[in-house]
């Protein structure tokens, strides 16, 4: 009985913590429970969640992707730039996604072909992505009144619910399906679990690593497109700020459901917890710097629980 209880706590302890936080704010923070505020929270965490899910794909294959935030900015600038110059929204979206995917593939090739550890390789790509973003924009954001069809992607609503929430759900469900129900998914998991064993079992582990990093790039690209649409502008640093919070969401997610390992529901709850925390603190009128301090504490606490996977990804070639 106690073992069962301990196991439950191990798997859902953090989620219960998130729930406790929710209840705390429901009581302590005025207006927190307003349906419009709850939708607001869901909408705000969408970028974070999509990036976090992408990052967890890379981490599943035991590689870190430290470029996703700046790659998101690059995709934002690419999509926004094309819209700004009156190209069709379809082309702009495709180009944004492609920019993200390309960066991901490059990350993958750097890690698998050049044997550069992902910690370093993706950081380098991150720098390149920033450089290209500034090259494209000259540092000046593309702004303007853009086509409604394009703006709907990030600002639209369906049955009173922001479209962004649907994007997040679609990506979360599809990712969960891929990882849990498909051959490619389990091959990525095997690659991350035991690279050598997977290779001996005939799994193309190098390809799986490229795939994991490519998916991370692709979701970063999608986030960039969504940001361009939501902000109707494209700043060369638009997505840079999501780096730490998205990683924090993944790390928080790794303390639950499948403790020690990146997982989609965990990342989702992690992002939700961070979103609730940020929103609740603002509603309570807490000073701005408190959020940063708490975010750092979350990262330390999470990693102390699930260090091995991250360390392996960070320091293995």
């Amino acid at each position: 009985m106690t073992e069962k209880y301990q196991n439950f706590l191990r798997r859902y302890g953090t989620a219960l913590g998130g729930l406790a936080l929710f209840i705390f704010f429901a009581i302590a923070a005025e207006n927190f429970l307003n349906p419009s505020n709850l939708l607001n929270v869901l909408k705000q965490i969408s970028f974070l969640t999509i990036l976090a899910i992408g990052f967890s794909f890379a981490l599943t294959t035991s590689e870190l992707d430290l470029s996703f935030a700046t790659v998101g900015s690059l995709a934002c600038v690419v999509a926004g730039g094309l819209i700004y110059h009156q190209f069709s929204p379809i082309l702009a979206i495709a180009a944004g996604l492609f920019a993200g995917l390309a960066a991901g593939v490059i990350n993958g090739l750097i890690v698998t072909r050049l044997k550069v550890p992902s910690l370093i390789g993706t950081l380098a790509v991150s720098s390149i992505a920033t450089g290209v973003s500034f090259w494209i924009t000259g540092g000046v954001a593309f702004v303007g009144r853009w086509a409604d069809a394009f703006l709907f992607l990030g600002r639209g609503q369906l049955v009173g619910i922001p479209v962004l929430v649907f994007w997040t759900l679609i990506i979360a469900v599809f990712s969960l399906f891929v990882l849990k129900q498909t051959r490619i998914g389990i091959h990525m998991i095997f690659t991350g679990e035991n690279d050598e064993a997977a290779r001996l079992g005939g799994i193309p582990t190098q390809k799986m690593k490229v795939l994991g990093l490519s998916i991370s790039g692709l979701t970063a690209g999608f986030t960039g497109v969504l940001l361009a649409s939501t902000l109707s502008s494209a700043d060369p640093t638009a997505a840079d700020g999501f780096m730490l919070t998205a990683i924090a969401a993944v790390l928080l997610g790794m303390t639950m459901i499948e403790p020690g390992h990146p997982n989609v529901p965990g990342s989702l709850i992690g992002a939700l917890t961070i979103g609730i925390l940020s929103n609740g603190l603002i509603l309570m009128g807490v000073e701005y710097y408190v959020q940063d301090i708490i975010l750092g504490m979350i990262i330390i606490a999470s990693v102390s629980v699930s260090a091995s996977t991250i360390t392996k990804a960070a320091f293995s070639v």
Binding site: N37, Q44, L227, T230, T237, A239, G241, S278, I282, L283
Partner: peptide, 17 residues
């Protein structure tokens, strides 16, 4: 310096009434 964060800060303040 994050544009999206300006937006979410504004939205959260609107919710905080």
């Amino acid at each position: 310096a994050n544009v999206q964060k300006i937006v979410s800060n504004l939205e959260n303040l609107a919710q905080a009434k």
